[in-house]
Design a protein around this nucleic acid. Structure first.
Lengths: 113, 113
DNA sequence: CGTATGGTGAAGTGAACAGTTAATTAAGGA
DNA sequence: TCCTTAATTAACTGTTCACTTCACCATACG
C-alpha cells in the first residue's frame, strides 16, 4: 500500500474536509477504532469509512485489524511533505531552494508545482 | 471581498490542484497578469479564470485591474494559517498548545477541527 | 468609427465527491 | 447454533469540480 509518495494533491484534498481534519486532530492524541472516530459525527458509518479511505489513500493513516476492530493510527510523513510545500511558498524563503527544486523537477520531468 | 478568514477548507481545497499550486509557485517570484499565468498550461482561458477565482476565494491572490490587464499578486496569510494547522498536527508539538486551541474553539463555538 | 487584445460570464458535460440505505463479511459471546 | 457488534462493500442520489465552447465586456489603437 505504498501510496504514490509524491501526491501532494491527495494530501491537500484529504485536509480540505473538516470531518477529516477533525479525525486527524483526534488521532494526534492516540490511535482509535473506527467507532471511536465516528462518535463525534452525525453521519452514517459508511460515510466515516469513506473518509478514512481518503485519509488512508493520502497516507495519513494506517489501519490494522484487531479482531473485529480496525485500529487507526496517524502517519505524519504526508503532513511533513505538505508542510514543506507550504513553508517554501510563504514568507521570504531562500531563493536558492527554489532553484534547486526546479532542477529536481526538471530531472523528474513532472509538474509537481 | 474579505474572505471568511477561518476557512481552512477553502485554502486546502485550493492547494489540492496541481495547476493552482503551479500558479502559486509562479506568483512567488512576482506578480503576473492572467495571460502570463495561463501561458504554461494547455487549457482554455476561462478554465484559468476559474482557477484564479478559487485562489481568490481562498484569499491566496488579489486581482487589481490595470487597463485591460488583471495583475495577480500572491497573499501568503492563508498559507500561514494552513501551515499553522499542519505544523501543529505533525511531530510531537506542545500539548498545551492543543489545549489553548480547544479553549479558543469553544469560545467561538465553531468546529474548525 | 471598427477591430484587435485581455479577460470574464454563462451554460453545458462528464467525472469525482459526500452522503444515504441495504446487504455483507468477520469475530465474539450466549 | 444463533445473535450481536464492528466495519466494509455495493448501489444509488444530489452536489461540486474541472474543464469545454460561445458570447460578452472593456480598453487600446488604426
Amino acid at each position: 500500500m505504498t501510496r504514490t509518495a509524491d501526491d501532494l494533491s491527495g494530501v491537500f484534498h484529504a485536509l480540505a474536509d473538516p470531518t477529516r481534519r477533525a479525525m486527524i486532530s483526534r488521532l494526534r492524541q492516540g490511535a482509535a477504532t473506527v467507532g471511536e472516530l465516528a462518535e463525534p459525527f452525525p453521519m452514517s458509518r459508511p460515510a466515516i469509512s469513506q473518509h478514512l479511505k481518503v485519509l488512508e489513500r493520502a497516507g495519513l493513516i494506517e489501519r490494522t485489524a484487531d479482531a473485529q476492530w480496525r485500529r487507526c493510527t496517524l502517519r505524519t510523513e504526508p503532513l511533513d511533505e505538505a508542510s514543506a510545500w507550504v513553508e517554501r511558498h510563504r514568507g521570504e524563503w531562500n531563493e536558492r531552494f527554489d532553484l534547486l527544486e526546479e532542477r529536481l523537477r526538471e530531472r523528474k520531468g513532472q509538474t509537481n508545482a
